[in-house]
Write a protein that binds this DNA or RNA. Structure first.
Lengths: 217, 217
DNA sequence: TAGATTGTTAATCGATTAACAATC
DNA sequence: TAGATTGTTAATCGATTAACAATC
């Protein structure tokens, strides 16, 4: 009995982590956990755990706690992992290859149904159960089926034209690994960025900050 | 003349993005920008831009705006990109290889000085300017030099023991691609997570939410 | 019933936005 | 000087934490 509607992004971003912890508990045959115990393990507060879970309806039992399996299933439902969306990969360089091979798409709500590349020496090569296709065939490919998401593993300088083309083909949803800001150009697009370079820079900041602090004390 | 001290994580996470936009402006020989104009391009508010920049001292000029080059340099300094920290890569599978090849470490404040792997068929292979080393040689390697960061590109089941070993070798800073929560175990460690699976699940949520919304309207 | 733990409301804290005086 | 735009303070909004009555 989910409440849904207007669950904040802060909560959503915590859900996959809850999902991981609950899955692990269920695997270890722990079928019951209190908000306090879960909070301790995840470095959160019990209040926050209860607030989060109550965004989508009461799943605990007073005096008892939460059923790990039921809660895990509920989060699975909330995250939309039950239905598989179709995704295509654009760019099969180092990063694209790694993403395709490393991610278990089916466990995250997606099916990888195509991989496209511009450089001739990669076209035709196998990638998982797929063969890498010529980027020029993209339009024909998309006209024959519904594609929900494009995974962008292309260099920044290509990103503008490629995302424009994908958008014109009706793809409004991007898992974006390139350093290009799609949402600035297409405000109605659904964009999830994985900016590894940015992530590494914030790590640099924290190390730097930490060493400055140690110097001063 | 940075103020520093207690810049919030929300601000820090925006800095790399400012850095990117300012670098681009400087490259295009735009040497001046107002908070309003920058905000428009980045999809922020002018207030937020000014608040952010004022965390580390006034760099604008009233009636004029900000000097893009000076500001970019300032952010570079804040993020600690001027001094290079040494990093080692643990795990040279698909993901590890992609990270090593894809990231320009020197531009993000780091030097990649070693890559380690357990599986014999990968040891000895070239990776960028390095040769992949046997994981068993890690301790000897670390005893001869200071390593600031370990990049974890290993399967989740390895993560607990590997991070424990790294921690015992004095490495307290991790760029973590594995689905294992290092900070739960080592609260004093500096951990930056890149959880691609989690990222993909939040994308699933947003598509699901979007399709539900369309259904109801 | 007594003890435990939730669901939920209220209080606090932090981050974003608005407003405007300072000043280039 | 007049216009533009900052730096900064105050107001608002949202997210986290605390408190406690409800209830299993």
């Amino acid at each position: 009995m989910p409440k849904r509607e207007n669950i904040s992004m802060s909560v959503i971003r915590r859900l996959p982590r809850y999902y991981r912890f609950l899955s692990e508990l269920a695997e270890q045959e722990t079928y019951r956990i209190s908000s306090g115990e879960l909070a301790k393990r995840m470095n959160l507060t019990a209040s926050q755990v209860r607030q989060d879970f109550n965004c989508f309806g009461g799943f605990g039992q007073q005096g008892f706690g939460y059923n790990t399996v039921a809660l895990k299933n509920e989060i699975e439902q909330i995250l939309g992992l039950r239905s598989l969306r179709s995704a295509i990969l654009i760019g099969v360089g180092n990063l694209g290859k790694a993403v395709a091979n490393h991610i278990v798409f089916e466990a995250r709500g997606f099916n990888l149904v195509g991989a496209f590349e511009k450089s001739q020496n990669l076209i035709g090569k196998p990638l998982k159960s797929l063969l890498v296709k010529d980027y020029n065939g993209l339009e024909a490919f998309c006209s024959e089926r519904v594609i929900d998401v494009a995974i962008l593993c292309i260099p920044e300088k290509e990103a503008e034209t490629v995302s424009a083309q994908l958008y014109s083909l009706g793809i409004k949803c991007f898992w974006n690994f390139s350093h290009y800001d799609i949402s600035c150009k297409y405000p109605d697009a659904i964009v999830e960025n994985v900016h590894m370079g940015d992530s590494l820079m914030t790590l640099s900041y924290r190390i730097f900050e930490n060493s400055e602090k140690n110097k001063n004390s």
